[in-house]
Amino acid sequence: MSAAPELNPAIEVAGLRKRYGVGDTAVDALKGVDLTVQPGEVIGLIGPSGSGKSTLLKCLGAVTEPSDGRIRLSGETVYDGGWHDLDPRALRRDRIGFVFQAPYLIPFLDVTDNVALPLLLAGRSNREARQRARELLAALDVQHRAQAAIAQLSGGEQQRVAIARALANQPPIILADEPTAPLDSERALAVVRILNRMAQQYRTAIIVVTHDEKIIPTFRRLYHIRDGRTYEEAGAGRDLG
């Protein structure tokens, strides 16, 4: 079931450009990307190496400043030739969740603290942060490992904890960079299932960058990126149940 269009798209990108370097050596990594994702929608973003996928994620994640274009999040312009008086760090903390190819959990914190960390960094109380972390761990079926050290978790469990961390601050957007790459088919599909469930449960827009052939058919909307430009392909995603 696709997400019903809402008043404001979660992500609206128009004419986004990114140029690295200057003069003759300058490289245009993004040459005018247009993209829209509705709340609760999970879209796939695929493309060959060097096509601009990572650059697009970095621009959307406020990690790299675009060279031109516009980014609107939930109807609010956050970038329009500049970061619009917004602190990129606060933007990342409060409005964007990240899931990486490797979970990149903090090894010296236990599972609950890893999930609670974004909330604590946002200034929430310890009690509130831990309560929210426990809820998310339960939603992702890893509540039984709440006190475990990261090294004690399996790869699939670590990825679920990473998803829980990305959801901690209830961001309207999650950017997932190859989240299933290290997993086998069954676990990869399980992760996609979780992302879909979380997107619908929390009305979160999720962009999944992937090369993983196993999960590409699961996206109802798929964007191809090639030579710094995006092309939307109407997907016929299968129901994952």
Binding site: G61, V63, R89, A90, R92, R93, D94, F98, Y104, I106, P107, F108, L117, P118, L121, A122, R165
Partner: peptide, 16 residues
């Protein structure tokens, strides 16, 4: 360094 990068990505302040 990887953990520090993750901390910065999820919004940790420099002073943290």
């Amino acid at each position: 360094l990887r953990e520090i990068a993750v901390l910065k990505l999820i919004g940790a302040r420099n002073r943290t």
